[in-house]
Structure formats: structure tokens, C-alpha cells
Computed example of a mutant assay.
Amino acid sequence: MASLYIKDEEANALAARLANRRGISKTMAVKLALQHELARDEVHIPLRERLAAWRKTQPIGEPTGLVADKAFYDSLSDEDGD
């Protein structure tokens, strides 16, 4: 198990204040604060970069060779294309 030792007195005091206010441990207070800061940073990542990261985990799939033209879409709603 890795441990984190906070040497800075102000950081230690801030962790203690949040822990006391929330009724949680200092460890949980640090985790909570770090999670919130990371979430705030993600909002500032440009949409293009967020979508690129999402596309890496959600592959589109292989092309089927099928044509999605007007006739195809009309067939979905039982229209004859007239």
C-alpha cells in the first residue's frame, strides 16, 4: 500500500478542516478534493480532445458495405420514396 505524507502544515490543516466539516477521515478529504479538482480540469479540456479520447475507447466498427441512401431511410418508415 502506498502512502502519502503531507509535509506542508497548511495543506494538512486544510485536509483536517474539510474532514471535520464533512465528518470523514483526512485521507478521504484529500481524495475528495483531488477528485473534484480533476473533474474541474476535465471541463477545460477542449471538446475535440474529449471526443478523440472517447473514440479511442468506442470504436465505430468495420464498414458493412451497405448504402444508406434515401431508399434505405424510406424503407425504415415504410415509405415508397415518392
Rank of each mutant, 00 (worst) to 15 (best):
Tyr5Val: 15
Glu9Lys: 08
Ala15Leu: 14
Ala2Thr: 06
Arg55Ala: 09
Lys7Gln: 14
Glu9Thr: 03
Lys56Thr: 15
Asn20Gln: 14
Ser3Tyr: 02
Ala16Met: 05
Gln35His: 10
Glu37Phe: 13
Leu18Gln: 08
Leu51Cys: 08
Pro59Asn: 04
Lys7Arg: 14
Lys56Leu: 14
Ala29Thr: 10
Asp80Leu: 13
Ala52Arg: 11
Phe72Cys: 05
Asp41Phe: 13
Asp69Tyr: 02
Asp41Thr: 13
Lys31Thr: 14
Asp78Val: 06
Gly65Leu: 05
Ser75Gln: 06
Ser77Arg: 12
Arg55Phe: 07
Ser25Ala: 04
Arg17Leu: 10
Gly61Asn: 15
Ala13Asp: 03
Asp69Glu: 01
Glu42Gly: 07
Thr27Tyr: 00
Lys26Arg: 09
Ala16Val: 01
Ala52Ser: 12
Thr57Met: 06
Glu62Gly: 05
Arg50Cys: 04
Asn20Asp: 08
Gln35Pro: 02
Glu10Asn: 09
Ala13Tyr: 05
Ala2Met: 12
Ala19Leu: 03
Ala71Glu: 01
Asp8Lys: 08
Ala39Gly: 05
Pro59Asp: 05
Thr64Phe: 00
Gly81Val: 10
Leu38Ser: 08
Asp8Ser: 02
Asn20Trp: 00
Glu42Lys: 12
Glu10Cys: 04
Ser77Leu: 15
Ala52Gln: 07
Gly81Trp: 00
Ala52Lys: 04
Ala68Leu: 11
Pro46Asn: 00
